[in-house]
Design a protein around this nucleic acid. Structure first.
Lengths: 206, 206
DNA sequence: CGTCGAATTGATGTCATTCAACTACAGTGG
DNA sequence: CCACTGTAGTTGAATGACATCAATTCGACG
């Protein structure tokens, strides 16, 4: 854990700053006002950033690496709610906004570099406040769109259809995570996914 | 369809105005600046407010009645994404924000009174702009929270557990919609739900 | 009373899970 | 370098949950 102020973290900061500048429309030379005191961490694979029951007090931005957000049910089974690769935001919006204990765990599944942001970032009151808020608005709207599509898939599609959809939308993630995590994301067992893949391969070969 | 300006619509407007005043913190005497030109409609049961393929250009607020938002899959089966009773907002955030064709249908399943809002409402630039935007922010965050919980349930819970959860969270809606719609919301067949209910009744009786 | 959609019920089928065995492979320590 | 270990992935057989299909029943409404 460190504050981003050393020379060797410069490239890291640039990455997040660039992202923010491009997406909010705030000129690069004004971005540092927002980001000069931002907390960044190198997170090693397997580290938990949030546990069920804790109150999530940050918004995270993944500069490098890959995180998963998941629940553990009463039988001890994990269910992956979301993956977060590079340039993705994530947070437990419910816990963050309403200050409730979170239902979720967050774990780094690769060595990662993560920016930790206070929720006030999106409402800091400066001259570029509107640009930041608009961008947050866009993030939230997009998130809702994704979640609704996922619900629709879970309601209407078979395991095979959900898998094909996943591969289509997240080809990169698909190559980076073990199969059992994909199964968990899709709501099926690892065995089930293995069979789905076998059938698909059999069909494509003939 | 009418603009809300007649005496007989006064109570209707008051309802929405009160809601907005209470939830945004904007004083009642300033609310009319926002709402004096708002479009309200009486929608009769069965009317579609949005069809798949259309671009959703409004945010809706349900003053009275009950709406459902649903998809129709390739087999012609309906899948209910959400119910919207009194004092609920709804919109296809994806279609609205990104100006894409919607995946969803919206139908009034009771005679309803609905407020039609331009998306600019939440960014009109007036003196209370911040209050309105903050409230919209809260709505979006809450929406995300609900959707994530639903996904978690769909991933981890049995039909029976999902049903019990639905009854617990939406006891009112449960009494107002036919059983097959609840089944559709839960992702099971009407027959399946019927059997779940029978088993629950059998258990509670003994 | 007759009609139509909603709900129930039974018989059967299908998809995905469970459990167990087995393979493949990476990491560890002797 | 090789056995030892643990995790991921695959496969088979049995099971279970829920769907499908068809036949009734129930209940609201003209």
């Amino acid at each position: 854990m460190y504050l981003n102020c050393g020379a060797n973290q410069l490239t890291m900061e640039e990455s997040f700053e660039k992202y923010l500048s491009i997406n909010t429309g705030i000129p690069e030379n004004e971005i540092h006002v927002l980001t000069h005191q931002i907390l960044k961490k190198d997170i090693s694979k397997g580290t938990l950033l949030l546990r069920e029951g804790e109150i999530c007090s940050k918004i995270f931005f993944v500069e490098k690496g890959l995180l998963r957000i998941y629940t553990i049910d009463s039988n001890g089974k994990e269910h992956i709610i979301q993956f977060s690769p590079e340039n993705w935001w994530f947070s437990d919006r419910g816990s963050l906004y309403f200050e409730e204990p979170s239902d979720y765990f967050v774990e780094a599944i690769e060595d990662s570099r993560v920016v930790f942001l206070e929720k006030e970032l999106f409402d800091f009151g400066g001259p570029n406040n509107d640009l930041i808020r608009s961008f947050n608005d866009k993030l939230l709207n997009n998130h809702i769109r994704q979640l609704q599509k996922r619900i629709n898939l879970l309601l209407s599609a078979t395991a095979e259809q959900r898998y094909l959809n996943f591969v289509k939308i997240y080809p990169d993630i698909m190559l980076r995570v073990p199969q059992w995590m994909i199964a968990s994301y899709l709501g099926i067992t690892p065995e089930g996914l293995s069979r789905v893949r076998r059938e698909l391969a059999r069909h494509n070969r003939s």
